[in-house]
Structures are given as C-alpha cells and as structure tokens.
C-alpha cells in the first residue's frame, strides 16, 4: 500500500483486497449497536453522573446534534469509499482518493470506528501498545489490527492537514 498527497487529494494506492475490505468496513464499524460500552463511549456524559439535571439536558439537546454530526461524517466517508466498488477484478489492487475537504469527516469516522472496536473487544492499554502481536490469530486480533490500521490512516491525514491547514475545512 502506498499513501501520499496529490494536490487537493490524499491518495491511497496499491490497496490489496484485504486492506480495501478493512476500509469498506469503516462505516459499519462505527455502529455501536449491540455493544452498550461503545454507545456509552461515543455519547459519554458531560459531567459527573450525579449531576442528573445537567446530564438529562445534554441528552435532550446536545446528543441529537452529536448523532447528526457523526452520521454526516460517516456518510461522507461511505460516499468516498464507493470508489472501491468498481468493476476491477476481485483480487486487483485498488486506489482511493480522498478530497482534503473530507479530511475532518475521515478523522471523525475513523475515530468513531476505533472507539467502537476498542469498546467491543475491551482492549486494554497493554493490547493497544502491543505492536508485535501476530496480526491475525483470532477475531479479536483482527479487531486490533483494524484499529491500528485506522490509527495509521488518522496519523497520515493529520500530518497532511497539518502541512497544509488552509486546504481543509471544518
């Protein structure tokens, strides 16, 4: 896999089918359904839970706005990922171009996915720092690989928008 910036696009090329599939899974991976810990992490309370009035107001007024924000980011990423659904041969390497204006949406969706995956598999600090683990021994290991791969993409996007901040939008 190669990753670079070409003018106003971030280009990920030589994507093998496995990594392309991991990218396709970003929107689905952000779904916290069935994992209360993930839902709790994405929509954490704004104050100590004993502050019930503050927390219930937040749930009523702010949470819907956050849900809308996260959904918008997810939809932007899903639309960009349509590029991976071309008519190429099933095992051919793919290329993905991300407009730099979508960088914030990608950072947000990747973060949603990483948080949900971490909550789903209950990864510890030790798991997250273990970069020498055999890539795929179980579904949990695959989850860790996926989380680290998304982190790698986040680092790349951050580096690129840091170099050219004027080319991105909030």
């Amino acid at each position: 896999m190669e990753i670079c910036r070409r003018e106003d696009k971030l280009e990920i090329s030589e994507l093998d089918p496995f990594l392309a599939e991991l990218l396709r899974q970003i929107p689905a991976s952000t779904n916290p359904e069935g994992t209360p810990a993930a839902e709790k992490r994405l929509f954490s309370p704004p104050a100590d839970r004993s502050k019930t009035e503050q927390c219930s107001e937040w749930k009523l007024y702010v949470e819907p706005e956050l849900r809308r924000l996260f959904r918008t980011a997810r939809e932007t990423v899903a639309a960009d990922l349509e590029q991976l659904n071309g008519n190429e041969k099933p095992f051919a390497n793919r290329k993905l171009r991300i407009p730099t204006q979508h960088a914030d949406a990608w950072l947000n969706a990747l973060n949603q996915a990483r948080l949900v995956i971490a909550a789903k598999y209950n990864f510890t600090d030790g798991d997250l720092c273990d970069h020498y683990r055999s890539p795929i021994g179980s579904r949990r290991d695959l989850g860790l690989f996926q989380l680290n791969f998304y982190g790698f993409l986040q680092e790349f996007i951050l580096r690129e928008i840091d170099d050219c901040p004027e080319k991105t939008s909030d």
Partner: peptide
C-alpha cells in the same frame, strides 16, 4: 482515553 491518538488530541 487510550484509544485517541496523541497527535489527534493535540490537533
């Protein structure tokens, strides 16, 4: 939060 990247948090 151990999941959020340091560079991301700084940004």
């Amino acid at each position: 939060d151990p999941v959020n990247l340091m560079t991301y948090v700084t940004m």
